[in-house]
Amino acid sequence: MSAAVAAEPAKVDPMYQFTIKPLAELELAGFDISFTNSAAWMLVTTIVLFGFVLGGMRRQLVPGRWQMAVEFFTSFIDDMLQANIGDAGRKYVPYVFSLFMFILFANILGLLPLGVVGLHPFTFTSHFTVTGVLALITITIVLVVGFWKHGLHFFGLFVPHGTPLAMVPLIFVIELFSFILRPFSLALRLFVAMMAGHVLLEVLSSFVIDGTNAGALWGGVVGLPSFLLMIGICALEILVSGIQAYVFALLTVFYINDAENLH
């Protein structure tokens, strides 16, 4: 599929890292559901997340470091829901926690320098098929909760209080449009942020490699500064991993709040 891209030697293709490669061909009802490197990293993320939370299940009265770390994350999500939605937000903790931790772990696992040992990490959150599905799940929950709790009053969400009667149709269209755009902004934000960081790292690494290959002078002028910049960008990317997971979870909470409490 992507062998043509990989065939060119001595050239760093910054987009190559996003290529999906099938590891085992599978088919279901006419759809190609091959187990790919992307799916493999979803599996890794699930296992690591499971292991992480399992370490926090010792239920000790005086928690150890691990248990404390897990409890920090659950309390963090719990507080976020409590602050934005109120007591009704409690029941969304499992979903928002899963979402936040799944994205966070995927982002961070995708940054691990495992390429050094020949195991190339794949950041599946840099694919809009993945972020899009997550965004659609969130919006589905918002729609289901909204119509379940408020019925047709849920459309009141698109007409803010105090809108002059003459403006209602226009405001309704604008608000509806912004609502429809929500899953796209949610999905694209995460996908673009993750892809941009990884592309930047790859481009800088090509500067390091090509600069160093061109001799000591270019290695010193281009390669070394690029390398130092890469270290900084790596730190920044770790930050972005956390922030993007947080933003995704926070926006999900805001949207669920709209459905729970309207305005």
Binding site: I20, L26, L28, I33, T45, P94, T129
Partner: peptide
Amino acid sequence: ASQIFWLLVFFGLTFFVVGRGMV
């Protein structure tokens, strides 16, 4: 198809096992 299928499988596992079971 593969992306959506496996995401639903693994995110579903995460949600039901970790989110609903352990959290």
